[in-house]
Amino acid sequence: MRAGSNSATIDSFGGNQYWVLTVGPGAFKVTFNYGNRQEGFNTGGRPQMFVGFKPKVPDTTVTHADFPGGTTWSGTAAKPSRLEVAVVPAPGALVRQTTAYTLEATGSVSFAPGAEAGPSVAGIYQISIGGHEGTAKFASNGEITTTNNETGTWKLFDADSKTYVVTFAGQRYSVTYQPGRGMVDNHGFLIFVQKH
């Protein structure tokens, strides 16, 4: 997590999304706001947020209050402590529902070094571009390799909008990274589906 508003999209066909920050000493607050579904059907559920100290820390408190469109978790920590935030998609594994959300932490909080550089896209993706099959590995050094020996590169263009430039199989793509989902092109198509 980084300072200010952190935005992402949660997908009921994907898993939970996790964010980490350091809180304390003193009081802190983490606010979660979600919007209307962006894709699929409204399954009637809503995404949820949960927080916890990892590992458990003595002399800490945390409570939450739901409000229409979100949740606020407030607490205190006697010393700097690692707080993990989990965003859980709306229930309904048979019907897709994607929902945009924002998280913001205020009070006595600090963030991981490098968090201002944008979310890490390093990971494994299923390729969903016509004519290309297999799995792609986005390495932390900006290189892409695939199971069928294709290569490419990725680099951050704008951290606030999560925009990246991906060069793959001789094509250059301007994509938006949606944590937990993958890379979406300018036409709204998910072209690299995040696996883990």
Rank of each mutant, 00 (worst) to 15 (best):
residue 36 N to Q: 14
residue 5 S to D: 12
residue 115 A to P: 10
residue 119 P to W: 08
residue 193 V to W: 06
residue 125 Y to G: 00
residue 83 L to E: 01
residue 63 T to I: 11
residue 16 N to W: 09
residue 150 E to I: 03
residue 1 M to S: 14
residue 157 F to H: 15
residue 170 G to F: 01
residue 27 A to I: 08
residue 46 R to G: 08
residue 38 Q to P: 03
residue 128 S to P: 07
residue 144 I to R: 01
residue 40 G to V: 03
residue 74 S to F: 04
residue 103 L to G: 05
residue 81 S to P: 10
residue 57 V to H: 09
residue 77 A to C: 06
residue 56 K to W: 11
residue 54 K to N: 14
residue 13 F to E: 01
residue 31 T to V: 13
residue 115 A to K: 05
residue 196 H to P: 09
residue 33 N to M: 07
residue 25 P to D: 03
residue 33 N to I: 07
residue 179 P to N: 08
residue 68 P to G: 07
residue 69 G to F: 10
residue 67 F to W: 10
residue 194 Q to I: 07
residue 148 N to V: 07
residue 57 V to S: 12
residue 160 D to Y: 10
residue 36 N to R: 13
residue 9 T to R: 02
residue 194 Q to H: 10
residue 135 T to I: 15
residue 107 G to V: 00
residue 68 P to C: 02
residue 142 G to V: 01
residue 68 P to K: 09
residue 97 Q to S: 06
residue 145 T to I: 02
residue 171 Q to F: 09
residue 179 P to E: 03
residue 112 A to Y: 14
residue 21 L to Q: 10
residue 152 G to K: 02
residue 159 A to T: 08
residue 94 L to D: 15
residue 32 F to T: 01
residue 141 N to Y: 05
residue 75 G to M: 00
residue 184 V to R: 09
residue 45 G to E: 03
residue 12 S to R: 00
residue 156 L to E: 04
residue 166 V to R: 01
residue 66 D to T: 12
residue 137 K to H: 14
residue 9 T to A: 00
residue 119 P to K: 11
residue 107 G to E: 01
residue 138 F to D: 00
residue 41 F to Y: 13
residue 59 D to H: 12
residue 165 V to N: 09
residue 6 N to H: 07
residue 81 S to Q: 10
residue 63 T to G: 11
residue 176 T to A: 08
residue 144 I to Y: 01
residue 98 T to G: 02
residue 8 A to V: 05
residue 43 T to R: 04
residue 174 S to G: 10
residue 181 R to N: 04
residue 110 S to F: 07
residue 57 V to E: 14
residue 55 P to Y: 11
residue 34 Y to G: 06
residue 121 V to Y: 01
residue 90 A to N: 11
residue 86 A to P: 05
residue 167 T to R: 05
residue 110 S to A: 09
residue 64 H to G: 15
residue 191 I to F: 09
residue 157 F to L: 15
residue 58 P to R: 07
residue 21 L to A: 10
residue 34 Y to L: 09
residue 9 T to P: 00
residue 147 T to H: 02
residue 26 G to Q: 06
residue 97 Q to V: 04
residue 54 K to F: 15
residue 19 W to P: 05
residue 22 T to I: 14
residue 86 A to M: 14
residue 170 G to E: 02
residue 137 K to R: 14
residue 79 K to D: 08
residue 67 F to E: 08
residue 60 T to A: 06
